[in-house]
Design a binder for these strands. Structure first.
Lengths: 178, 178
DNA sequence: ACCCGCATGTAAGCCGTTACATGATTTC
DNA sequence: GAAATCATGTAACGGCTTACATGCGGGT
């Protein structure tokens, strides 16, 4: 059911079309929080509009429909956010790969951890650029957008991944006492 | 297809039954990497055994079957680990909630971030205990288990979440110039 | 005029969740 | 002897992926 709230949440920031939502998933949510393709987004939008939790705010060229969050949708989103979640479940293929490293021999292992480290370093650097850009855009009305929250989260998460890779590299080859 | 490799990977560390695998998912993989229920695990094991990438190593009481990784399974796992992945996709409901915070009003937002911070702090403390326990168990043959890798990853990730929450708390109420 | 990107949609099949189902062994 | 835990399984349903499908509008 998270797709529903991801869509409501994105529309809470500003009205958007399905096409734009697909891009927002890719750019801001994909790497850390949630992902959906257009083939899932369009039917979901139609369903939400039928229910009345979102409305068609504008119709444009090429059949484009811009959706806005209705009051009922905002209330539902708030309720979902405030109810304390049960044990949350994560599915993250990259992390799974990292955890399965001990099944490889020393050379393969080292290769993969070094790759993970380099990746974290590169993506971390990319995110710094994005953050500078976002901080340049800030306006008084909207101090923090979810994009900025996501970026900061990403920055810290990549930093953690780098530290983890360093720790793993140092430990992995060593004998038990390490 | 990740379930397949998660199972192969767990069996690479040591032979286990479906029941044990379900527990391993819960204890080590669930929070960061992958999750599966027994209703998914048992059919997968039967499929993998039919294919021959795992074998039944032992049959015990109550119909218990202990599976071991076959050579072909180990080769397949290695191949999967070494091929560089495409853009990986993450689905993490907790993080999604955090990213949607800006849609709430100030009071609700603060409440949720404080909750996230407290949670990271508590789970971080729990993981420190687990790490001490794991480090006490270390044997010379197997310097690092995937459980230890997961624990260290968790430790750093919780630390990052705490830092993120502190940053968000400091920024969120402030006017744009922050 | 052509191409690229915008824009939305559908359908088959696979993956994952929830619920139902059963029974053996150990522990108190 | 009862309860908890071990142990495996199936089926219906819903969510997600992949592939197919179509057409408009803006830029060069």
């Amino acid at each position: 059911m998270s797709l529903r709230y991801a869509v409501l949440g994105l529309l809470a920031e500003r009205p958007a079309s399905g096409y734009e939502l697909a891009q927002m998933f890719e750019q801001s949510l994909q790497r850390w929080a949630w992902y959906a393709r257009h083939s899932q987004i369009y039917p979901e939008l139609n369903k939400l509009a039928e229910e009345g939790v979102i409305t068609v705010a504008e119709e444009g060229a090429r059949g484009r429909r811009t959706y806005a969050l209705a009051d009922s949708g905002r209330a539902e989103l708030r309720e979902w956010l405030l109810k304390t979640p049960e044990t949350p479940v994560v599915r993250d293929e990259s992390t799974l790969r990292l955890f399965l490293l001990p099944t490889l021999d020393t050379a393969d292992r080292r290769r993969l951890v070094e790759y993970a480290r380099a990746e974290a370093e590169q993506l971390g650097a990319e995110i710094e650029v994005i953050i500078e850009r976002l901080d340049g855009w800030r306006t008084p009305e909207r101090p923090i957008t979810f994009g900025r929250l996501a970026a900061e989260y990403g920055r810290l998460a990549y930093q953690a991944q780098r530290e983890w890779a360093d720790w793993a590299l140092e430990r992995m080859d060593k004998p038990a006492r390490g």
